[in-house]
Write a protein that binds this DNA or RNA. Structure first.
Lengths: 197, 197
DNA sequence: AAAAAAAAATGAACTAGTTTAAGACTTTTA
DNA sequence: TAAAAGTCTTAAACTAGTTCATTTTTTTTT
């Protein structure tokens, strides 16, 4: 993918919430860093401080932690036109507990913490962009955290398939089980139960 | 509580993230509505569109839904100096699925949707305030949604007690069980197990 | 295209959490 | 201040989800 296409994608994403002049667009693009990760490559590993917040222009990634037994817990999947990163570590500058790994060759645009801070000074409109972006994310995480404790594994699986049909076929069942908080064995049972119906 | 005290409390909360002039403070206060709810009273009920986002100056409230079996699932508790409401319904103007009920006599300041929109026009600094507030909330909801699926009930209980010691003794065990996504009976077992250790 | 590695399916034995029911304790209401 | 209503505890029987072990299928590497 050439630079122009990925820039157009992020500008379209931003323009859902704010309007930018040509000059502001150029300024914004100049604050971003192009990043490529090959399949199975890491964008970030636990122990590091999150250097960037990422916008995905191509590919698919998973964000996960390892618990004290070494078992992975997947926090999110991210594909084209999604934002990802470890917002907590990015803001506090404390070491992250997350890994971000590409499940396909992926291309991203990253904004560093210094440029993120600069962005608000240079183009204050971005306060509105992030206010709106975080507001929308917050709404879906509030829903997700309620569902996590009040729905059964089967309900969560059915919900995920309905809500993210574009993601389901790009990830392994094992990873989806990790995201839903169940074992791959139990998820296999859920699937065969659903197929039998 | 007299008006001045509650106004001071919300202005202190806002000034954690932005600085306001005296004039801006007055303008902001003028956009807020004073609301009182007595113990067991409802601030909002499922089926209604959320009219306000609320800041609590005194008291304690619980936000919950009822599932298809009529069982309550508690989404959050809110006490003094917290913000609450149903952000999703407030933004989309679609009917809410939540109830907000006072567990003690409570006093709040509400901002209506019209005034919320006006606020950004009149005092653009509030974009930054909400950007920062939502950013912080998002970080804790991301954590909560991960914990909901990856921790055991006992771990979630211990976490809650450690993180919100001020709230634990103001709510019933039954409500805390509803928040943690377990039955009151099982929570009772967890507590007696912990006490025996 | 073969060999190696990882993912998926299946089943049996297990454990965390639920359900139902009953009695003791506490808070609310009249 | 008595009665009623709600909360908390305990326990036995149950179910959703886990663990461990084995085989089959798919994907990756050479």
């Amino acid at each position: 993918m050439n630079f122009k296409e990925s820039h157009q994608l992020i500008l379209d994403n931003v323009s859902r919430f704010i309007d930018l002049t040509e000059l502001e667009k150029q300024k914004y693009i100049s604050l971003l860093t192009e990043i490529n990760v090959k399949k199975k490559g890491f964008l970030m590993q636990a122990g590091e401080v999150a250097k960037y917040e990422y916008f995905i222009t191509k590919g698919c990634l998973k964000v996960y932690t390892l618990d004290e037994n070494g078992a992975p817990h997947i926090s999110m999947f991210a594909i084209e036109d999604y934002w990802t990163g470890d917002l907590s570590s990015f803001m506090t500058r404390e070491p992250s507990r997350y890994f971000i790994k590409a499940t396909e060759h992926s291309e991203l645009l990253g904004i560093s913490r210094a440029n993120y801070d600069l962005l608000f000074q240079e183009i204050p409109k971005f306060e509105k962009f992030y206010r709106t972006l975080y507001q929308k994310s917050l709404i879906s995480y509030i829903r997700r955290s309620n569902h996590g404790i009040s729905l059964t594994a089967e309900e969560r699986y059915v919900n995920f398939k309905k809500k993210y049909p574009q993601i389901v076929h790009r990830i392994t069942q094992k990873d989806l089980a990790g995201y839903l908080g169940i074992t791959p064995e139990f998820m296999s049972k859920i699937i065969s139960k659903i197929n039998r119906m």
